[in-house]
Amino acid sequence: MINLIRFIQKHHVLLLFLLLEIIALNMLFRSNAYHRSAAFTMNSAVSGVFYRMHKSVTDYFYLQQTNEQLAQENAYLRQQLQHNPVLSEKDSLILNDTIFHYIPARVVSNNVQFRNNYIVLNKGYEAGIEKDMGIISPEGVAGIITGVSKNYAIGMSLLHKFAAISVRFKRNGNLANLSWQGGDYRFGIIDHIPTHLVVNKGDTLITSGNSHLFPEGILVGTVEDYIASDDGALNQARIRFTTDFNRLRQVYVIDNKHRSELDSLLMIRVDE
């Protein structure tokens, strides 16, 4: 016993160091499990207030850019209205409109320089945002909500180790999985492309609609490079995201009204 006390006395700094590191690493690895801990969701409310101050100043620098972006989006939407005068005849469009609701939100904090990047939005569960909803920017897919507090929500952007989304080649409808390997925030990667699939530079990728997070057909990126593997089995493609993550300001959170229904349906199928 005396030896133990003596040991602790002699090495108290080292023991304290190890203890504090274990606490820190424990926090780190817990939070990396897909969903963030509740404690840090609460904290996003605290730091959210702080970031809003910062935002209220810096927003002015980007007014012109934001205006342009919104004007472009308006133009695009108007054009769509013109080209689809018979909305009611197309069931899928109506279906899309009633199933998916878009909640506009502003980005209060966002980064691109880390391996795992998070977006903080200025709306929370009061505005109807829930965990696991998709986030899109006017230019394309941006991320997935991982936690909400009353007035703020935090989401992982596509620039995250665990953010892999199901996409489709617009040209031929083939499915693929898009992920981000770190490094340059403008480019993601598609793994495991079978050799028979012809991929051209500039091919457009859209959301597949398989995940219930995003409606089908939202822009994700374009093919930048096609990387043939050495053994000729499964190839890769480098994808340029259409969303510029470094300029993310105005986003929409997608509320899938049928999600709980779809989820429980999938559960039933699993239980079988």
């Binding site: 700094v13 160091f17 504090l20 590191e21 606490i23 820190a24 690493l25 424990n26 926090m27 780190l28 690895f29 817990r30 939070s31 963030r36 801990s37 404690a39 840090f40 904290n43 996003s44 605290v46 730091s47 702080f50 904090s109 980064n111 880390f114 795992n116 998070y118 903080v120 935090i154």
Partner: peptide
């Protein structure tokens, strides 16, 4: 807290202090 990266900076800074 500000960067919503629980434990990451904590671990690095404790190491620096050590």
């Amino acid at each position: 807290l500000f960067m919503s990266t629980p434990g990451l900076h904590t671990a690095a800074t404790v190491l620096v202090a050590f």
